[in-house]
Structure formats: structure tokens, C-alpha cells
Amino acid sequence: MTFEELKPFIVPGLPHYLALSGQVFAIGILIALAKRNAIAVLMGVELMLNATNLAFLAFARFVPNAADTPALAGHVFVVFILTVAAAEAAVALAMAVLVYRRRETVDLDRLNLLRW
């Protein structure tokens, strides 16, 4: 078999990246929904953000650029998401620290003061 014939099996293409992205996103959302620990939920959210990043990069790499979209549009999105994710992590972790100082727990089931 030539390399060209083997290429679809060895070199990952768009479907592979999207499948990976979907799996990571699913893991992330499951963590975010199922964990009681606020820190763990934040980690799940980070996974979801990075799964999206992966999908963006994959599309940027494999899908031909449309005429009216600027070059590197997908990459730019990723840079923005990374920035926002960093800021979000900083704020959310600071909140977690403050909540812990006040309540001595970060168990989300017990942080239910905003219900009726």
C-alpha cells in the first residue's frame, strides 16, 4: 500500500478532531453537571472551553476559507477564548476562595442561598 492509500488511517483528518473535541466536551459537561465540588466544576468548564478551541482550530485547518472571512479567523477565536478562560478561571477561583472562607465549604449543594 502506498502512503497515499494509508493516509486516511494514519494522518488524522477533520472527523478525528471533531470526534475528539466532542468527547472532551462531553466529559467536561458531565464533570460540570455531576461534581459537587466547585473547583471540580470549574475544571469541567475548562475542558469544555478547550474542546471548543480544538473544534475551532480543526475547522480553521481543514475547511477552505470563505472569500469574505478574514484569514486566521478561527485562530483569532481561540486566542480570545484562551484569554477569557484565563480571566474566568481567576475570577471563579477567587470566588471559590472567598466562599470557602465564609462558609468553610465549596459544596455546590450547600451553596443554595439564591433559591426561593
Binding site: L108, N112, R115
Partner: peptide, 14 residues
């Protein structure tokens, strides 16, 4: 209706 808002964001997200 307010009984449906029980303070569990994870449930809302689900």
C-alpha cells in the same frame, strides 16, 4: 412557579 427555582445551577444546566 418559584418552587421550580430551587437553587441548583447544575440542575438548570442539565
Amino acid at each position: 412557579l418559584r418552587r421550580t427555582i430551587f437553587g441548583q445551577p447544575q440542575a438548570y444546566t442539565s
